[in-house]
Amino acid sequence: MSLDTVVEDIRDDARARAEEIRAEGERRADEIVSEAEADAEEIIETAEQDAQQEIEREREQRLSSAKLEAKQARLEARREALQDVREQAGQAVAAIDGDEREELTRTLLDAAATEFEDASTVEVYGRGEDADLLESILEEYDGFELAGETECLGGVVVEAEESRVRVNNTFDSVLEDVWEDNLKTISEELFEER
Rank of each mutant, 00 (worst) to 15 (best):
E56I: 13
V93D: 00
I44M: 05
L63F: 08
E159T: 15
G98A: 06
E42R: 11
I32D: 03
Q52V: 10
R22E: 03
A113Q: 05
N169H: 08
E80A: 09
R166G: 04
E56M: 11
G126P: 02
G143M: 14
T185Y: 07
Q72A: 04
R74N: 06
F191W: 01
A89E: 00
T5I: 11
Q53E: 05
E35T: 13
K71E: 13
N168G: 02
D9S: 10
Q88G: 09
A160R: 07
E26W: 05
E102M: 10
A160T: 09
V85R: 08
E140W: 09
S173D: 02
D13A: 15
E149P: 04
R15V: 13
L82T: 08
S34R: 15
A113N: 05
K184W: 09
D84S: 11
Q53F: 11
I137Y: 09
A94M: 05
N168H: 05
N169C: 07
G98V: 00
V7E: 04
D97E: 12
D110L: 10
G126T: 09
G155A: 13
E180A: 12
E140S: 14
L133D: 00
R11Q: 08
Y141V: 08
F116Y: 10
T170N: 07
A147C: 04
D99F: 08
V33T: 14
S136D: 10
W179R: 10
Q72K: 09
D13L: 15
S34G: 12
A119N: 07
E189S: 12
A47I: 03
